[in-house]
Structure formats: C-alpha cells, structure tokens
Design a protein around this nucleic acid. Structure first.
Lengths: 104, 104
DNA sequence: CCTTGACACCTAGTTACCCGAGGTATAGCC
DNA sequence: GGCTATACCTCGGGTAACTAGGTGTCAAGG
C-alpha cells in the first residue's frame, strides 16, 4: 500500500472503525489491520495525528481511561462524525466509480 | 472530487488514456473528462507536471507536432509504461477492495 | 533483577503531489 | 479589436502521510 494512495481516504476509514465501537488509538490501528485483512498496517505517526485532527473537527470525542495500569485515550464517534462518515462513504463510491471508468 | 483523494492515482489514469491512443496534453485533460463522465476536470497545473514526471520516468515518450498552426506535444506510452499501467491497475484493485472492506 | 517485547501515547520534520495563479501564443469569429 | 477556445508552461502553497525519535507501563524469560 503506497503512502500517496491513502491520502484523503484515511479519515473515513477511522470514522468507520470507531463507529462500530469506541476504541483507543492503538486499538484503532489494530482494527484497521484486522478489517483490511492485514493490508492496512498504518504507523502510529499516521494514525495519532489523524485522530487529533478528527477530534479537533468535532467528528470524534475522547476520554482518558486506565486499564491495568495503562492510560488510554478512548475515542467515540459524534453525531457530526456519523454524518461525515455517511458523506465519506458516498464520496468513496463516486471516486471509486470514476477511477474505474477511466482505468478500465 | 476533492484534491487529496486523487493523490497517487493520477499517473495510472493518464497512462490508461494514453494507452488507448497517443494524445497531446490538452487532449489528455479532455479525455479524462470524457471517460469519467465529467467528474475528472483536472486543471492544467495538475496534468502537465504529471506528464513531465511520467516522461522523465520513461513511462511516456513525446514528440512535437504542429497541427493547424498550433504546436502540440504528443505523448505515447512506452513498453515500461504499459507494464506500469498493468501494475497500476492491480494496485488499484488491491487498494479499492481494502478500502471497501474497512468502510463497509 | 533485568532485559526484551508488547502495549500505549506523543510530536517535529520531511516528502510528495495536486492545485491556483500567472504567463505565452495561435486560430477563428463577431 | 476583443473574445473564446486551443495549447503549452512554471512557481509557490497547502495538505497529509510517513520517518524517526521520544516517554512510560506491564508481563515473561533468562
């Protein structure tokens, strides 16, 4: 998976996995890897800033929690985030069919 | 079509349209627009540098021609370009199904 | 006990590339 | 002459993913 390809699509992916269940950052990385069949192995330096961006935009909200001595920031999706996820899925479909039309 | 989304996918699209027939830069823009049903209206500042990049990488080659007083740089795909186009299509399929798996 | 690896967080700087804005020039039409 | 379409080009800016580093906890093995 080339780095450039992902640009502009990551936010939707994160919103999607967090919409299923609230997750802390590290778990988001693992969830992305699991759901993608191992294809999406994103470094922390990619995911953490994205989570901060999404929270700053009001699409996610977070809370600190401590599980077995380890501090975790647990993210949940907001109402605005749900809406944006819908828009994101729509944009993906449009983008995908556009590329397919030209590439085929 | 958001700007970020396209990142890393443009080269394959250009290779694809040029592989059907040799085209000059301006015609590449129109071909992309036509084949995408009008969704891919790329500015010149995006396409021309991409063409130069692809030629520098040996995936396209170009020749000057003059048609009715207008100079045109006509691009054709090279053997390496054909190979890269195949790889590009494969990468797209992998990328697309990965995104779909996570987003769905 | 102490090192190693998994867990869990973070940020600064680099890099790539799409785009906006600007420039040049010809042809054809009103 | 002015406008539109055609046709080429480049520079600078912005965005976002990654690299490479840092901090700290916990459990397991030597």
């Amino acid at each position: 998976m080339k780095a450039e390809e992902l640009k502009g699509h990551l936010d939707g992916l994160i919103l999607s996995v967090v919409s299923h269940e609230s997750l802390h950052g590290y778990a988001v990385i693992e969830s992305l890897k699991a759901r993608s069949g191992g294809n999406l192995a994103l470094p922390e330096g990619t995911v953490y800033p994205a989570l901060h961006r999404l929270e700053a935009d009001g699409l996610l909200k977070s809370e600190w929690s401590t599980a077995s001595g380890r501090r975790r920031r647990v993210y949940s999706i907001t109402r605005r985030g749900e809406k944006e996820l819908g828009a994101s899925r729509e944009r993906w479909r449009a983008f995908s069919s556009t590329i397919e039309a030209v590439l085929a």
